[in-house]
Amino acid sequence: MIQKHNVIEVENLSKLFGDFAAVNQISFQVKAGEIFGFLGANGAGKTTAMKMLIGISSPTSGKATVAGFDVYREAESIKKNIGYMSQKFALYDDLTVKENITFFGGIYGLSKKQIEQKRCELVEELGLQEVTNSLVASLPLGWKQKLAFSVSLLHEPKIVFLDEPTGGVDPITRRQFWELIYKAAHNGTTIFVTTHYMDEAEYCDRVSIMVNGKIEALDTPKKLKEQYKTNTMNDVFLKLARG
């Protein structure tokens, strides 16, 4: 098998707020097409680390490149080459499905023709034909999240960052969402995902667990379970994060 190249490279990356190290010298690499789970307790530093990687927060020290671009000097290029969705913000509730797709397609610099084509594909794939002209506010949460994920892929980014994409979503939709993730990864998109559902941690190719600003564990779910002598990722997490 050909060794796949790294799309994220992080070396001794830190972020200080005053004398508090929110992120403390973390290092890791993510390969193209990998599903990388980024786990940690509330307040462990995940969001701070993610903000540096998506180019909206400047690190205090250390090195990082995302999709080949430097987080210090090329933050704008990073933003153009990644997709992002979070539980808190994803789509505009007071625009229709169609308007949201057009808006985000435009933001990412797609031509009218490309947007039109992408919109048809996306509506078809998610089965949204009936609701293209409905306000996003009127859709069930699960539909919104699937739509938001597809919209984050409109410009065919190399990497997509997902911040707790499935919080509160019903179990069936949560699984349909993961099938979309698998499909995107299968097509070569790198997935960087945070979650509090430990069964979802099992779906990742590799998982890192942050504790107090540091990455305390990083491996495949299988190896982490062997290392910590447990049967579930939930127990691995409890052993590590409880200190």
Binding site: G40, A41, N42, A44, E164, G168, H196, F237, L238, A241
Partner: peptide, 13 residues
């Protein structure tokens, strides 16, 4: 009402 939504597994336990 959903006291543990968005809370990590350790705090949930």
């Amino acid at each position: 009402d959903e006291p543990t939504t968005g809370v990590d597994p350790v705090s949930r336990k």
